[in-house]
Design a protein around this nucleic acid. Structure first.
Lengths: 232, 232
DNA sequence: CTATTCATTTCGTGC
DNA sequence: GCACGAAGTGAATAG
């Protein structure tokens, strides 16, 4: 990774034409040749950039200014994109060996939702209390097993996006759970299908099978915990 | 703008939870407080970031490591986002005054399309030749004035996206142009509505008024020129 | 493999 | 100021 701070002018020709007047900016050249032109504001998006794979050719103009010509190696289809950077004054130029990044771990929303709902089962329905998370069945664990105010068992399936297969899954669980006399002592085990967003098809299928759908407000749930506690 | 190259670990909690294991990365802190965590690959998108407005608090952990806590000043709605960066080893740390950026100039596709079509009028219709660009009328210039193989005049209106108002515009031009005996000597001036993409409504209106619609292949047109010539 | 959907989307535009 | 659509969208997921 090469980092250059310089007064520069940028011209891009590709899907569109764009021009950046002469000003001081940060230029980031990544190991794959991709180039990012950042200013001191805006969002994470650079003012201009060139996506990999591409190649940077460093040259000098007639009047002695440094010029970078970045060309994308677009394979075949259409003319190649070009990014031309004219460097008037270089304030800083450094090279850094970063190595290969292990990459981002997204601690899935589904898992996090399960934790939050396990802490606040009543948000799925008044009077609900948690029996246990990952309640085992012969075909896999049910996300949450709860009990309602009447002592009836409630199996909860949690998804980020509720689709048909999630309803099918919960249906299979319910089928098995309802064979257990211990769970059905106070009445049949009923199901709750909880998700941030439930697709209409899934809602229809669930309703048809007597499964209750609950749309979960992730933000509101998170708000019940102290934000600083949520790190790690 | 502050640039830091450091071995670091990043934890984010906001709309989702995410974690970046310890590795060497580039940290960019912009003047508005926004923070970007970049690795040496991927696209222009950082591995993780915090959008402005936000605040960076630098602290030290129990074991003497530098810790940055970036918090968004999300006004009211929901819990604030937090980005925690633990710095194990700092390779470089520099501050740069970039000033205010004049910003990106998108030299509209429309203008570029006009230049390209002026160079290749036959791509709008066989036998078409250019009379002149920006052909003047009392209510403004027509993008292109052409002549077809029969010597008839053809007025061309160019848009990036063809919508109803563009058709209206061309209609007004045609109305005026058809009062000019010089232009109508070989027959009435006809219109061509050219755009990268033409909305169905605009297509219906144009057809109704006897205006021909041409969907322009921007990439193909650009390919007719030498890509290196297209800068500036 | 392609096609569709999602995004910590960001960014502009019209109302 | 807010709702809606486009993006040089890119990335993940379904089919």
């Amino acid at each position: 990774m090469r980092l250059v701070v310089a007064r520069c002018q940028v011209d891009y020709a590709g899907r569109l034409s764009a021009h950046l007047p002469m000003a001081t900016r940060v230029l980031m050249i990544k190991a794959d040749g991709s180039v990012l032109v950042h200013s001191d504001g805006g969002s994470y998006k650079p003012l201009n950039w060139m996506s990999p794979p591409c190649k940077v050719t460093e040259g000098v103009t007639e009047d002695g200014q440094v010029e970078w010509l970045v060309t994308s190696r677009a394979s075949g289809k259409g003319p190649a994109d070009t990014l031309r950077i004219l460097l008037e004054e270089i304030h800083s130029d450094s090279e850094h060996d970063l190595g290969i990044d292990p990459g981002l771990q997204k601690d899935g929303v589904e898992k996090h939702l399960q934790e939050l709902l396990a802490d606040h089962p009543a948000s799925l329905g008044t009077g609900l209390t948690l029996v246990r998370r990952e309640f085992p069945t012969p075909i896999g664990p049910v996300d949450l097993m709860c009990r309602d105010a009447n002592g009836e068992s409630v199996a909860v399936e949690i998804k980020r996006r509720g689709e048909i297969d999630g309803v099918e899954q919960l249906t299979r669980y319910l089928e098995l759970l309802n064979r257990d006399p211990l769970l059905t002592a106070k009445g049949a085990v009923r199901g709750i299908f909880a998700a941030q967003e439930i697709k209409p098809q899934a809602k229809v299928l669930a309703t048809d099978r007597g499964i209750q759908c609950v749309t979960v407000d992730y933000d509101a749930l998170r708000g019940m915990d102290d934000p600083t506690e949520r790190l790690f």
